[in-house]
Amino acid sequence: MMTVETPSPSTAVETDTLVDVDDITIRFDSKKSSVVALRGVSLQIQQGEFIAIVGPSGCGKSTLLRAISGITSTTEGSVSLRGDQVVGPRQDVGFVFQRPALMPWRDVRRNILLQAEMRGMDRVEARERCEDLIQFTGLTGFEKSLPHQLSGGMQQRAALCRSLLHQPDVLLMDEPFGALDALTREKMNVEMQRMWRERDMTAALVTHSVAEAVYLATRVVVMGARPGHVVEEFTVNLPRERDYEETMEDPEFHRVAGRVRELLGSASSHE
């Protein structure tokens, strides 16, 4: 099932495995039915990687991300973060949902600082980092705006700042740009690329957009549905710094995007 096209980082000599998903199965049991969301999924994420997870609806992409963060527990198999087994919600990750999930009564700055308040972080340090993130994501001038006064893109930037305030080991994003219009989404992709590159982040992104996945990721994981499983992984051999237009025309981009689309197409034609 799991064929690896190019030498995968997991087989290469790398020691910095940050996330280790080891053969996990997740089943949701209710009184009436039992649904297997994931079966036998394994995935390693190395320090500094950007993983994009794509797949048809209902293939358990989000469940996989939630299992890494510990919000959802595994039925079989185990997940480790930096060698520690994940048993409950983990505080060393940053999580971004599709909806910004900002507190409507807090302005942008206080929404970002919620992270610090909940964790009991050092106030001065948190404040400094908050201002830095506000500036970095272009939220300057909007610190005192309430969420409902902001566009979807700006709201998602605030959510991103909040998830980065505590400098998490890994940033997990569940379709963070899915609700944005195409232009804003593109802009956010460019910002995300720069952020990952300049801040030495490790990230995992669930997305429906193949272009977004290949543009951002160092490795694209294609999943299939019923039950959710990993179909194939592709390493994207593009430089760390990627210009949007240039990347869109790069033969490597087209090669990977083409293969991913092919796989997704055949996956959905079986339905």
């Binding site: 963060s69 505080q91 999580f95 999930a101 909940m118 505590h166």
Partner: peptide, 14 residues
């Protein structure tokens, strides 16, 4: 309350 806000709270360790 938004269930995602509660999940977020658990990740924040509050």
């Amino acid at each position: 309350v938004d269930p995602e806000a509660l999940e977020l709270a658990s990740i924040m360790g509050g």
